[in-house]
Design a protein around this nucleic acid. Structure first.
Lengths: 135, 135
DNA sequence: AAATATAACTTGCAAAAAGCAAGTTAAATA
DNA sequence: TATTTAACTTGCTTTTTGCAAGTTATATTT
């Protein structure tokens, strides 16, 4: 499983594929929490791949799965603190694309705050996640 | 090729696999510049995969390939500005592992500077890359 | 000059992962 | 009761990865 003791390699062992960080993104930034919501993204992940990624992310402690108390068919996927702490990596990716690939739709206001007010932005985004999760 | 206009997805389209960012790491942080040096990492990438990743990273403008003037067998792989600008992402990955997986060998001094003196650290790392590349 | 070594691949093949469509099960809604 | 929805699961094909061996051009050693 773990390829080396390198901290970068370690992160890639968790989320170093084309889908895992998109799941994290959808939960962290778009407030998605259920399987069908996560399925419904512009990148069109296959159901079996999404099932697999959710299981792996749960197993490695990046998110939790609970049954919806209101609708027993639904699972609710929430980020753990480990998962929420991937936010800075997502932010840096947004900044990279904003700089080097302006065709992507990085929200200008978010980019501006990330550059001027990084820590406060991250705190705000964390707070928003907590709010959605009722914390 | 591009799955969506999302800036995060865009970065993953470039380096969203288990090897590309390790190549970037080895060039940016360990001063490696040739194929054999890049082969010789703890994670043991296969030659055909390394060849493929170098070609892709070159095609998407993250690095350049030139012949070594001293030894005509050697290629020299250097990061472009696009590639060097991935450094903040690598830094955040190191911080994540330092926090959540202390078994990894994140250099404590680098972690400390990343937390207290982020911009200066990144400038220093950039300068070191430039120095290796003779800029 | 000939033999050996090195750098950077390339090829072939088996195994793993991804992608796609269709099917399944349990729970909710009409 | 019939239909819809949520979350998978299965089967199958394509793509990617991993591993070992082979190739070509250049450099070094004898």
């Amino acid at each position: 499983m773990r390829r080396s003791d390198c901290p970068i390699s370690n992160v890639l062992d968790h989320v170093g594929d084309r889908w895992s960080l998109l799941v994290i993104r959808d939960i962290a930034l778009y407030g998605k929490r259920s399987f069908t919501e996560l399925l419904d993204s512009a990148e069109h992940v296959a159901t079996n791949v999404l099932t697999d990624r959710l299981r792996r992310l749960e197993q490695t402690g990046l998110l939790t799965r609970t049954r919806d108390s209101g609708d027993a068919r639904k699972n609710i996927y929430r980020l753990t603190q480990r998962g929420r702490d991937l936010l800075p990596i997502l932010i840096e990716m947004i900044l990279w694309s904003a700089r080097h690939d302006p065709q992507t739709n990085a929200p200008p206001e978010l980019v501006r705050r990330a550059q001027t007010d990084r820590n406060a932005l991250i705190a705000d985004l964390q707070a928003r996640i907590d709010a959605v999760d009722g914390r």
